[in-house]
Computed example of a mutant assay.
Amino acid sequence: MTERADPAASAVLETSKAGTPVLSLRSATLAYGDRVLWKNLNLDVKPGEFLAVLGSNGTGKTSLLRAILGQQQLSSGSIELLGEPVRRGHRDIGYIPQQRLIEQGTPLRARDLVTLGINGHRWGLPVTGRKTRQQVDRVLASVGATSYANVPVATLSGGEQQRIRVGQAIASNPALLLCDEPLSSLDLNHQRVVSDLIDERRRAIGSAVVFVTHDINPVLDKVDRVLYLAGGRFRIGTPDEVLRSEVLSYMYNTPIEVIRTRGRVAVLGAPEGYGVHDHLEHHIDDRGQR
């Protein structure tokens, strides 16, 4: 866990009672008809905690984020943010989507998107005063985007656009930062840059991070705990507690091998899009366990 050092930290987070989790799920269940994605999920995420959410495609990782955002109703159970039921459009939640290139011709500049992270919730035409402009400048500087602050976002590279999305998500100093595979489609350099930006913000203001990913390796050194979803089951614990052959073999009901080497993790034998992978897989075909 980390200390909050930034005076601009979320007012709600600053005034929350000591020991109150940022995010709390109780008996949370999500099902579509007879198909149960996860059942009776109990989870508390503390200020400054980095939780990685892993699992195969279709196990409900993005649905979990949608439920936290108030966009998806649980089948049963509850979700609370700072002790209150979650609601759609909560100002203390920041959201970073998957990397998608913005269409050419979109006139919004980088600073415009970050400004929307501050006043986009207000009705009517946004009025950007000096205080807001200064805040936008600080956010742009914090994500290393000052040099292209006034450039149309559509002309920026994928990595630069994702920096701006991080800036937009953190502009309101949220208590909770939700990240839906924010590193997908980025090269290794930009994966490191974006994950470091998220982690730096977490450390600066104590935001809790819920980070959905198919590959834990780019953030493995930042993760406090893992929530692993598979086959309607879940496991919560440190990476060393969850990412083990016997644990994943039980969850998938099939033999799974977890290999650790040079500070990285490879999972062999799990379904496609299983949640942790490594280039090692491409060199073990002769074992028939890909």
Rank of each mutant, 00 (worst) to 15 (best):
M1N: 10
D6V: 07
P7T: 01
V12K: 12
L13V: 07
T15V: 08
S16I: 11
A18L: 15
T20E: 15
P21E: 08
P21I: 03
V22T: 08
R26L: 03
T29D: 04
Y32T: 00
G33N: 06
R35Q: 13
V36Y: 09
W38E: 01
W38Y: 15
N42R: 03
K46A: 13
K46I: 05
K46Q: 15
P47R: 11
E49A: 05
E49P: 06
A52M: 11
A52F: 02
V53H: 03
N57I: 04
G60R: 08
K61I: 00
T62C: 02
L64Q: 00
L64W: 03
L64D: 02
L65M: 10
R66H: 12
L69C: 14
L74F: 05
S78W: 10
G83I: 13
R87M: 12
R88M: 11
H90D: 15
R91Q: 13
R91D: 06
I93F: 09
G94R: 06
Y95W: 14
I96G: 05
P97Y: 04
R100L: 14
I102H: 00
E103K: 13
L116T: 06
N119Q: 08
H121A: 13
R122G: 01
R122M: 15
L125T: 14
G129L: 04
R130N: 12
Q134R: 13
Q134T: 01
Q134Y: 01
V139P: 05
L140G: 01
A141V: 10
A141M: 03
V143N: 07
G144L: 12
A145M: 03
N150W: 11
A154G: 06
T155C: 02
L156K: 07
G159N: 04
E160I: 06
E160T: 01
R165P: 00
G167D: 02
A169R: 04
P174M: 08
L176T: 12
D180A: 12
P182H: 07
P182K: 06
H190D: 08
V193Y: 05
D196I: 06
D196W: 07
I198T: 04
E200K: 15
A204C: 05
S207R: 00
D215N: 08
D221M: 00
K222A: 07
V223Y: 12
R225T: 11
L227N: 01
L227V: 04
A230V: 07
A230E: 07
I236F: 09
P239K: 03
P239I: 05
P239Q: 09
P239T: 04
D240L: 12
V242K: 00
L243D: 05
R244C: 05
E246P: 11
V247R: 02
N253S: 15
N253W: 01
I259V: 15
R264W: 09
A266T: 01
G269H: 10
G269K: 08
G269Y: 11
Y274M: 10
G275M: 03
H283L: 14
I284A: 11
R287H: 12
Q289V: 14
